[in-house]
Simulated assay, not measured.
Amino acid sequence: MAGLGIAALPDFLTDLPIAEGTLRQVMADYPSPEAGIYVVRPPGGIAPRKVRALIDILIEWFGAR
């Protein structure tokens, strides 16, 4: 946007600006590589409930492989 360069961004951030014409898609013929999401926490012990809840939400949203 505003000529600031090229970025790889998720669809939920780019759909509206592309539709409005304020953002332009480039390199559409080149698919993005798959990326992963990882939860990193200290080893051992049981995760606190807040951490476990976040992990469960991430698994539900993005799926586990």
Rank of each mutant, 00 (worst) to 15 (best):
S32D: 02
I46M: 11
D56G: 10
P48A: 12
I57D: 13
I57E: 15
K50C: 11
M27K: 15
I6Q: 11
M27F: 15
V40A: 10
G45W: 00
P10G: 02
M27V: 12
P42Q: 12
P10W: 04
A47V: 04
L58T: 00
G3R: 00
P43N: 07
I59F: 03
I59A: 07
A2P: 00
F12K: 13
E20R: 15
G5M: 01
D56Q: 12
P48Q: 08
L58A: 02
T22H: 06
I46D: 14
D15A: 15
R52C: 12
I55E: 14
G21P: 02
A2H: 03
L9V: 14
V39P: 02
P33G: 06
I59W: 00
Q25E: 15
A53Y: 14
L58F: 04
I57W: 12
D29L: 06
F12L: 13
R24M: 10
E20N: 14
V51H: 10
D15F: 07
A53N: 15
R24A: 07
A47F: 07
I46P: 07
L23R: 12
A53Q: 14
M27D: 11
P42K: 10
I37S: 01
L9A: 11
I59L: 09
F12E: 04
T14G: 00
T14K: 01
V51W: 09
A35Y: 06
G63N: 07
P33K: 13
L16D: 05
P42G: 09
P10L: 03
D56K: 07
E60A: 10
Y30S: 14
G3K: 00
V40I: 15
I46H: 11
V40T: 10
I55T: 08
V51E: 15
P48R: 08
P31E: 10
L16Q: 10
F12N: 09
I37A: 03
P42F: 07
G5K: 05
L9F: 03
P42T: 08
P17Y: 00
I59P: 01
P31G: 05
V39H: 06
E60H: 05
I59G: 05
M27P: 00
V26I: 13
G45P: 04
D29I: 00
R41W: 05
I6N: 11
